[in-house]
């Protein structure tokens, strides 16, 4: 459905995203993982034709066979809401405080689907049920500030779903929420993708959240997709040193609770240094300078993508890690 080929986004000649290529098949759930400044959010915006005006876009974004990378805003507008919709990080600022919930959800349907007021309201009510909001009839007439954080995010999701998009892009949709509310929103996104056969691009820095929602993931660092593959495999057996570092930088609750009282605190693995600014990224492998297994050639040479095993796994590294020995 979506075919992205050699997509690059640059600011003042610095590539924030460097020739990214990936597909989003119908109904797929794709995780886009990385830290701040890795290019994941701007990639997501490009999927809606909403990359900042200061960005130079090159490469190809094909939606259902239609080339969109250089498409005029008018064409993009006819695609948004109906083909692709977005859920933002901060639900309170993404919802107009002066509008009732019902109007927020109905507006895109009235605009794009030309539904009349009653039909749009009835659909809005159904959508609230679908996203799991109790007593939808009463909620339709409430304002965003009267809802809890989790409910606001549900309303935002309902509005995004209103014109039955084929792809939903969710950019860090749960970072503003408490953990247990966040978990339910994640499960909701997953369920909606399954029941609607709707593709989901889920953007997050949180590996646990990505593991919970997606079946395939892309790991981005410094504008490069450094590793991709089925989520479970990739997390269990990372082949790019960055992915491995990211996984090990987080303490794991299950392992650590076993630490006996008074036992010495284990050290956390951590990636040395910090993410360089856009202008200071190395020319070759973006991870050069922080990489524990770096070779002399890495900083100057952009590694090619290696395909690992039978198909799905890819890694952009000169010397990918060996497979982890998984106990039988």
């Amino acid at each position: 459905m979506y075919k992205i080929r050699n997509l690059s986004l640059s600011f003042d000649g610095h590539e924030a995203v460097r020739s990214a290529s990936f597909d989003i098949p119908r109904g797929a759930r794709l995780g886009l993982v990385g830290e701040s400044g890795c290019g994941k959010s701007i990639t997501a915006l490009a999927l809606l034709g909403m990359a900042p005006a200061s960005a130079r876009v090159s490469g190809s974004i094909e939606i259902d066979g239609q080339e969109m990378a250089a498409a005029p805003e008018r064409l993009w507008r006819s695609y948004r809401a109906r083909k692709v919709a977005m859920v933002f990080q901060e639900p309170l600022s993404a919802l107009n405080p002066l509008k009732r919930v019902g109007d927020i959800i109905a507006e895109p349907m009235r605009l794009h689907l030309r539904l009349d007021r009653r039909a749009a309201r009835a659909r809005a009510r159904d959508l609230l049920v679908e996203v799991g909001i109790p007593d939808p009839e009463a909620r339709l007439d409430q304002y965003p500030h009267q809802l809890s954080g989790g409910q606001r995010q549900r309303v935002l999701i309902a509005a995004a779903l209103s014109c039955d998009p084929q792809l939903l892009v969710a950019d860090e949709p749960t970072t503003a929420l408490d953990a247990h509310v966040a978990g339910r929103i994640l499960d909701l996104l997953k369920r909606l993708s399954e029941t609607r056969d709707m593709a989901l691009v889920f953007i997050s820095h949180d590996l646990e959240a990505v593991a919970r929602v997606t079946e395939e993931m892309l790991v981005m660092y410094g504008g490069d997709i450094v590793e991709r593959g089925p989520t479970a495999q990739l997390l269990a057996d990372p082949r790019h040193p960055y992915t491995k570092g990211l996984i090990e930088a987080r303490p794991r609750l299950d392992a650590l609770t076993l630490r006996a009282d008074g036992a010495p605190r284990p050290r956390l693995a951590s990636i040395p240094g910090s993410v360089p600014a856009l202008a200071d990224l190395p020319k070759g492998c973006r991870f050069a300078g922080r990489c524990p297994i770096e070779r002399p050639a890495c900083a100057g040479l952009r590694p090619a993508v290696s395909v690992l095993g039978p198909g799905q796994r890819q890694v952009r590294c000169l010397a990918p890690l060996l497979p982890a020995k998984v106990p039988a």
């Binding site: 830290e35 820095h205 590996l207 990211l246 090990e248 930088a249 990636i271």
Partner: peptide, 9 residues
Amino acid sequence: DVSMQGQIL
């Protein structure tokens, strides 16, 4: 960022 957290802890 996640990769920094370990260093600080």
